[in-house]
Computed example of a mutant assay.
Amino acid sequence: MAKLLYSATASLDGYIAGPGGDMSWLTEHLTGDNPTALRLLAEVGAILAGNTTFGGDDPNRGTDNEGAFGGQYHGPAFVLTHRPPAEPPQGVTFVSDLHSAVAQAKEAAGDRYVNVLGASVARQCIEAGLLDEILIFFAPVLLGDGVRIFDQPGGARVRLAPIADESAHWYRVVH
């Protein structure tokens, strides 16, 4: 059965996007091979993203590397939104309910990961007790402002258990 994994690259001060969703800061940190990211890409069976993330800034916009995993991901994508487009892009399913979006993405992923993209969807998955794992890559930069990895003032404490990995911070959500 598919697992729900939130993965992101963050600045050392905990931001995954700059002010206004700016992702240009990430471009200089996407160089070289990353064995963990390559392993993850091979294990992703579907993507679940929020509408802001889906339609947002891409540090590789306008290049051959545009899209998820530097343009290397070519599989089903599900977008959680209450405002689907009149004509959805091919291969993208727009869903208005979190539980339905997760169920559809898990079905599409089979026994592989559903990779959650976007802080808001990740927060909603945690609140609903649906998230299984978190994988965070840290870039050596301090952004100072923007979109946090997780931002829920007054939110509940969530326990995590480390998953051994040498190049990233990967955790299992303890239920």
Rank of each mutant, 00 (worst) to 15 (best):
G14N: 08
V95S: 04
D111L: 00
S167P: 00
W25F: 03
G55H: 04
Q90L: 15
P153W: 04
M23D: 05
L143T: 11
F150K: 07
W170V: 06
Y171E: 11
L117D: 13
R123I: 09
R172Q: 15
I136Y: 10
L38T: 03
R159W: 13
D151A: 10
I126L: 15
E28P: 08
G20I: 01
S7D: 14
D57C: 09
P89F: 12
A164H: 10
G45D: 14
D13P: 04
A103F: 06
G146K: 05
F138Y: 15
P59F: 04
S120F: 01
D22N: 13
Y6H: 05
A17I: 02
A77K: 12
A10C: 06
P88W: 07
A164R: 12
K106D: 08
V92T: 03
R157H: 13
N34Y: 03
D58N: 13
D132R: 10
E133I: 10
R112F: 01
V158P: 01
D22M: 01
D165Y: 01
A8C: 15
Q104Y: 02
G18Q: 03
S100I: 11
E127W: 01
D151Y: 11
I149C: 02
Y15H: 15
Y73A: 11
R61C: 00
V141H: 13
L30K: 12
I134R: 04
A119F: 08
A108E: 07
G154L: 01
G144K: 06
E43Y: 03
A164L: 12
V147C: 02
D64I: 07
G146E: 04
P140A: 15
C125L: 08
N60K: 09
V79C: 05
Y113N: 13
